[in-house]
């Protein structure tokens, strides 16, 4: 359920819906920031059906990726894919 995708806020319009232009790999869509009013230009937000539902915590994402990298390092020598 709940297909939601991270995109980057390019521009925010004032107004009751806080409509922002959000870029998803270059494609842009109008997204309402009413549910995430703290988001600012440059932030990544997670978007579901035209609404940002959270501001992506870039540090947390980085921590996850580092943990994955550490796990891969310590992982076994290159072996055939499962």
């Amino acid at each position: 359920m709940c297909l939601a995708v991270p995109g980057r806020v390019l521009h925010i319009e004032e107004g009751p819906l806080l409509t922002a232009t959000v870029s998803f790999g270059g494609v842009t869509k109008d997204v309402s920031l009413v549910l995430v009013p703290e988001a600012t230009v440059g932030d990544y937000v997670i978007v579901h059906v035209g609404f940002a539902i959270s501001k992506l915590d870039e540090q947390a994402a980085q921590r996850s990726l580092e943990a994955f990298a550490a796990l891969s390092e310590l992982g076994e020598p290159e072996e055939s894919a499962p």
Partner: peptide, 14 residues
């Protein structure tokens, strides 16, 4: 960004 990195095959295997 924040999609592709989470599809890495090496990390998936680990």
């Amino acid at each position: 960004k924040y999609v592709t990195e989470f599809r890495d095959s090496k990390a998936a295997r680990a």
